[in-house]
Design a protein around this nucleic acid. Sequence first.
DNA 1: TTTTGATCATCC
DNA 2: GGATGATCAAAA
Length: 233
Amino acid sequence: MFPFALVSPPGSEAELLARARALAGHSIGAIAERHAVPVADLRRSKGWVGRLLEIALGATASSRGEPDFQLLGIELKTVPVDAKGRPKESTFVCSAPLETMGDLAWAESPAREKLARVLWVPIEADPAIPLTGRRVGMPLLWTPSPDEDQALAQDWDEFAERIRSGHIDRITAHMGQHLQMRPKAASARSVRWGVNEDGAPIRTLPRAFYLRSSFVARILSRGYVIASPATRS
DNA sequence: TTTTGATCATCC
DNA sequence: GGATGATCAAAA
């Protein structure tokens, strides 16, 4: 495909936030058209909306293990929301380092690093609205509060303990009040190295961390509104 | 093949 | 309906 109008990386947090706010109230279709991005079918291109927003906001690290806005150290997350502004899905954080996380504290975890600074962009996701007609909501720049950080640390510790004891396969999505660990793979046959209770390598399903929608709901409720570009909560 | 972007499909 | 486990596509 092709050269869409290139958006330069934002030079500051304020600039990024201003850009994101300017998108609020606009439709996905209008934004895609502005950047000449062909509209895809979400059933097949599940990450299409996220990639569109990366383009529209000038994110730099596509498919690389770095913050979306490297200079600013900010991660971009689009989140599908219902009419009330509640997330409809959990939010992917990062893949789980199965071989090392048994000895990894939350403070030094890749999950904590990813979540240190996040620009949340709600996206209207009512299935009754055609994809191109869905609007972008008011963005929110977030850093975990001490309470939130501690809560996430608790969940992390539970996972780390199961890994440490060699019980990776006893970790299910039922665990974790706010942070989940679930499969993340091309298929259920995908394989990744983990460790058993003796520290010996075992083959297991690749996992990743996700934030429960209830957790993200509380974040968004700090400032979310469906609004025209001029409106703020 | 892995990482990043996520949502889908099915079971409770 | 909501959550869990499974899956899809692009980029590197």
